[in-house]
């Protein structure tokens, strides 16, 4: 027990003294997660809206497929993307493997279905009469879409926050596509796994504290956004 308490106290010390190694890892993690969330949102929100609102054939099949992809293990996505971006892969010429961009690509694959599925749920809840009202007030197609997105904004924000929470805490993709290179592709989760392997718990616990703090902030934000949606 004293071993754990010692590690915990040392971890707090690392956080308080703004340890450079710790903050380098946190910085890489946040950068990669923010970019992948942004890219996935740009793709996932319109995709979800189109599926929910569009009159497309096989809509149920597409939704089922998306929901299945939500349960996809990160290592499977890692393996799948690896096959494409490794030197022997189709996109090998871009030399992406073991870079932050590779992690971003993998994470985008991970959370785009999540954002799309949650956007579908958010948009589907919006009463059809919003669209009818907007049209009868003179809105064109784009303006009508914006009205619906505005009404679904809280649900869509919650989707993006959930997606960020998912990527910041994943390890499989970061490890397989990033390679856990110190100062370059080492993220909070991969660093924690490494420190655990080394039997050095101080940095792992410190990173755990930061990760949990981020999760807490995300959850507070999530509840705040959902609460506003209910007003």
């Amino acid at each position: 027990m004293s071993f754990f308490i010692d590690s915990f106290l040392s971890a707090i010390s690392l956080v308080v003294t703004l340890d450079p190694e710790l903050f380098q890892v946190v910085r890489v993690s946040l950068r990669v997660s923010c970019i992948s969330t942004l890219v996935a949102a740009v793709g996932g929100i319109p995709l979800g809206f189109f599926i929910a609102y569009g009159n497309i054939k096989g809509k149920r099949m597409v939704i089922t497929l998306l929901n299945t992809m939500l349960a996809m293990p990160t290592v499977v996505i890692g393996l799948f993307v690896y096959a494409f971006i490794s030197r022997r892969g189709v996109f090998g010429v871009f030399d992406l493997l073991y870079t932050q961009n590779a992690i971003i690509v993998g994470q985008v694959f991970l959370i785009t279905p999540l954002i799309a599925a949650l956007t579908i749920a958010a948009v589907s809840r919006i009463d059809e009469r919003y669209s009818k009202t907007a049209k009868t007030l003179g809105a064109n197609s784009l303006q009508t879409v914006l009205v619906i997105l505005r009404e679904a904004q809280f649900g869509i924000c919650a989707a993006v926050i959930s997606a960020f929470g998912r990527v910041v805490s994943e390890i499989g993709i970061s490890m397989m596509l990033g390679g856990n290179i110190k100062g370059f592709t080492r993220t909070m989760t991969t660093a924690m796994a490494l420190e655990y392997d080394k039997g050095s718990f101080t940095l792992a616990v410190a990173l755990g504290l930061v990760l949990m703090s981020i999760s807490l902030i995300m959850n507070v934000l999530f509840n705040f956004v959902q609460g506003r949606g209910r007003l």
Partner: peptide
Amino acid sequence: VVMVDQYPIMFTTTVFKNIEFGLKIR
């Protein structure tokens, strides 16, 4: 032509902005 529904839908915003919507897009 403007239609007013039996159960009118109001956008989730203020009274002012609800009326402003149609004017703004014009």
